[in-house]
Amino acid sequence: MSADTLETLDTAEASWLAWRADRAAGLRAPRGVLSLTSHHWLGAEPAPVVGVPGLWWADDDGAHVRVDGDGAVTDGDVAVLLDAEALAPVTGTRTVVVAEAGSAVPFVVGDIGVELALRTGRYLLRTRDPHAPALAAFVAAGEGVVVPAFGFDPAQVRDLPVRWYAGPRAAVVDGAKPGLVHHVQVVGEVDLDGTTLRLVAGHHGGATLSFTDRAEGAPEWRAVHVADAEVEASRRTGTLRVDLNRASAYPSHFNDHGTCPRPLAGNDLPFAVEAGEKDPR
Rank of each mutant, 00 (worst) to 15 (best):
S103L: 07
P178E: 03
R128T: 03
L9N: 08
D193M: 02
R222G: 03
T5S: 14
T212N: 12
A25D: 13
V181F: 14
N267S: 02
A12E: 15
V173G: 13
G188E: 10
G144Q: 15
P161C: 06
W57N: 10
L240H: 02
L17M: 08
V145L: 15
K177P: 03
A171R: 12
L34N: 00
E274W: 10
D228E: 13
V52L: 09
A137S: 15
A272T: 10
R126I: 00
F150Q: 09
S38E: 05
T37R: 01
E274Y: 08
W16Q: 10
P30V: 05
G167P: 06
A84H: 06
G113T: 13
P89F: 02
L87C: 10
G69S: 11
G92K: 03
S2I: 08
D70G: 14
V114C: 09
A18T: 08
A272I: 14
V181T: 15
G54D: 01
N267D: 04
P219E: 14
E216S: 15
D256S: 06
A3D: 14
A99P: 02
D111T: 14
N255Y: 08
L17H: 04
K278G: 07
F254N: 03
F138C: 10
G69C: 10
G43L: 04
L17V: 09
W57E: 06
G121R: 01
R31K: 03
S248K: 02
S252Q: 03
G179M: 10
G194F: 01
H39T: 04
H183C: 14
T8E: 15
L9C: 04
E230L: 03
A149Q: 04
H225L: 01
R241S: 00
A21Q: 11
L244H: 10
P130V: 03
P154G: 12
A201K: 03
A117S: 05
R222S: 03
A207W: 07
D75R: 13
L9M: 11
D153Y: 11
S252A: 12
E232R: 01
P154L: 12
V49S: 10
R262L: 01
E45N: 07
Q185G: 14
H253W: 05
T95V: 14
S252W: 08
T127L: 09
D159R: 12
R28S: 14
G151H: 11
S2H: 11
A229I: 01
V184S: 04
V145A: 15
G188K: 06
A79Y: 12
A58G: 00
P46K: 09
V157D: 02
P261T: 00
G238Y: 02
V187R: 01
V73Y: 05
F150S: 09
L87D: 03
V157Q: 01
V226P: 02
V224P: 00
H225T: 06
T74I: 04
L269A: 11
N245I: 11
G76A: 12
L124N: 09
V147I: 14
V187K: 03
V109N: 09
G175S: 10
L87K: 10
F254S: 05
G144D: 14
P263A: 09
S38T: 09
H131G: 14
D193C: 08
A132C: 05
Y123M: 07
R126D: 09
